[in-house]
Structures are given as structure tokens and as C-alpha cells.
Design a protein around this nucleic acid. Sequence first.
DNA 1: TAAAAAATACCTCTTTAGTAGTATGGCGCA
DNA 2: TGCGCCATACTACTAAAGAGGTATTTTTTA
Lengths: 214, 214
Amino acid sequence: MIEIILAKILLIDDHQLFNDGIRVLLSTQPDLVVCGQVFEEKDILFAVQKHTPELVLLDLNIQGRSGLEIGMQLMSSQPNLKVVILTMYNQPKLFEEALKAGFHGYMLKDSTTAELLEGIRAVIAGRKYYDPRLVKQLSPSISPFKDDFALRANLTFRELEMIRLVREGLTSEEIADKLNLSLFTVKTHRRNIYYKLGIGNVAELIEFASRNGL
Amino acid sequence: MIEIILAKILLIDDHQLFNDGIRVLLSTQPDLVVCGQVFEEKDILFAVQKHTPELVLLDLNIQGRSGLEIGMQLMSSQPNLKVVILTMYNQPKLFEEALKAGFHGYMLKDSTTAELLEGIRAVIAGRKYYDPRLVKQLSPSISPFKDDFALRANLTFRELEMIRLVREGLTSEEIADKLNLSLFTVKTHRRNIYYKLGIGNVAELIEFASRNGL
DNA sequence: TAAAAAATACCTCTTTAGTAGTATGGCGCA
DNA sequence: TGCGCCATACTACTAAAGAGGTATTTTTTA
């Protein structure tokens, strides 16, 4: 059972989905539990220490003070805690800051419920999740993301290469021919990729790659 | 030279990109010209009649009155005019209404510049353009692509549904279970999709769907 | 209402994907 | 120098996808 704290995100009234949508959404997930919900900065640390949740969903707009600071403080005080920013601000600069600060996720409030859940699950699974729209807007020169992501998902170069070729519609055999490898090798790589990403078939692989700009 | 009128969209101050971003954006496009810009309802019809633009970018939040109404009025008075909704409201209901009303496009303000241009160009080219995020949220029964992409590719409703489920990583058997169909039926649909799209495997299907916002 | 299109279903067969376990040479690093 | 990671490769198996054909029912539409 995974426990989650909602940090202020239920107070946001500028997007109908979130008036109490996120709690409802999470309540439909048998393995996710909202163990706390706070609306002011002073309560967050206390709640986290009390519940020691797996993950905190953090709004960026917490009464004046920057949510980023609060989040960073949280992460340094609780090394195993995962902190995901959930905000309405689709601002590249904020996003870049959050990236640098090492947040485990950055999602936008107008995401679909499927996307939100995907993000939460990705982070719980030990990966990072950033809204694809933000990643797309990142200037490619800065983009610490690609390497960052590959490294954090523990994908090797060969594995990334496999993903690229699978996306082009090549079969394992065609990839083997192209790279002068044994078919067995290619299949081993694919298996490892699936294992690392926690997925089970090509469809999921390509959806995943598309979403994460691999 | 394509002429465009911006209907109130420069007044929106809740998203930095649009304070004057859209005009700047369009000014970088040699073949697009902003021929007018209005901020109040009473000026729109006059401006359209004066400039007879190809396209109007219309905000939904025009001083109290529903932007949808204004847009419908515009379209009926100027049959050749293309009207694209550009709004910050990612609300399925609004979007569905706009679809029914026959608007040529519906874009969200937090789109990237590339997406905005893509949408504008699609509409100018005689196609329709709806933000993929909204389309994704639509209940499949309403799917707007009946008169758009699906028709071009001759994809039926059932086929689109198959694509959606395949993208979610479901196998043919799982789809069959979910929809209470025979496995044979699902496989037949998949075969037909591949034939229509000229592709040969799941990887290509999903790449294709991603690229085309199915 | 007749024709066309869409959705449904079945059979057979080949190919590819996916799962599981194992193994080995190379390379970097502590 | 030995441990871990990477890339490579194999066997053996099951599951699923894909290609080919055919056919019935329902729904749309001309």
C-alpha cells in the first residue's frame, strides 16, 4: 500500500478538476492511499514526519513562499521521500528550476486522469515523470533531461538504440540484421528494457517513449 | 497572404505567452498577417466585414457573453470564414459544444508555439484542428474525427476504439474481454486498420497514432 | 428498399514477441 | 584484482501477432 500526501493541491480553485478531483481519483486506485492533506506550509513537514508517505504531491503556490523551496527542504529532510510538483503553471523556467532541484516529477493540472496516474506510478516505480509538454518546450541545448532520464531509468545506450529502432517499426530480427547482432541479443535487450521500465509489450514501450521524449 | 483577426486573445493576461505572444508569433510567419485585433464583442463583426480575413482566432471569454455564441454568429454570417477557438479552458464540455457548433479548430493557450502554428495552418489548409489533449479526453462516442482524420483514413469508430485500447498496452484478447467481443473480431479489426493505414505492426500503429493525434 | 459499409465471427497457418534461465568476454572502478 | 555492469549469445518454451480466406448480421445510406 502506497501512501501519499496532498500538499495544498486541494485548495486550488482555478481548475475544476482539482477542487477535490485528485482525492477522488486516487481513491479509485486500490493500492494508493491519501494519508494526509495539508494546506499550509507549517503543516507539511509535520504531516510527512507523522505519516512517512511514499510520495508528496506538492502545489507550487503555497501561501507566498515558493513551493520549490519547500519541496527541496522536504527532500533533504526525508531522503527517501518522493516529491512531485503538481501545478497549473506551464512555465519553462519554473520547470527547469524544478529539474535542477531534482524533483521526482512535474505535472500540470490540466493533465488527464490517465496521465496523472501514469506520472504517480512512474515515480513510485522509481522513475521520474515530467509532463511531456514541458519537456517539449525545453530548449534542447539545455536539455539535461534526455541523459538524465536515461540514466535514472538505468537505460544503457544500446537499450536506447533498441527503443529507437523498435519505434521505427523494425522487428527484432530486422534490428539484429541492421546492427549485426544475434536475434538472441536483441531479444535480451528488449527483455531488459521491459523489466527496467516496468512494462510488458511493444505498445507500452512506444507509448512510454513518446511520452517521455526518448 | 493569409489574413487573420485576433478576437480579444491579446487581452488575456492570465497566461504570459499571450500578453502579446500570438501577434509576435504570427509576425514571424511570412505568409500570415494579423489584419485586425478586437477586444470587444461589438467590434468583431465590423472588423471581420472590413477585412474579410481567412481566419479568426477567438477567445471564449469575451466580456460576459459566451464566445461560442459569437463564433457561431460569425460563421453563419460569413460562410467562408474559419473560426478557431483559442482558450485556456481545458473543459471537455466546452470543447464538445464547440465541436457540435462546427468550429474549425479548438486550441489551448498553453500549447507550444509549434502546436499553435500547426493548428492554424491545418485550418487554413481546410482541415480541422483540435488540441490532442482534449480529443483524448472525449468520450469515444462523440469522437470528432468522424468528419476529419478518421474519414480521410477511412477509419471507423470501432477501429479508432481499437487503436485507443492497443495504445494502452492491451492485447487483442484483453480488448476482446473488455468489449465483450470475440478475439477473432478484434483481430479482424486490427488487420483492417493495418491495411487502411498501410502499416504492419503495433509499433508502427502507435507511432502513427501519436503523430496524428488519434 | 436495395446496396454498401460496418461490425461481428470463425478457421488455419506462419511469424514474431515475450518469459525464463544461463553464460561469457570486456571494461571500468574502487 | 575482484566486483559489477554491459553487451553479447544460446536453449527452450508459451503467448500473441499477423496474414489469408470466408461469412453472417446489423446499420447506414443512397
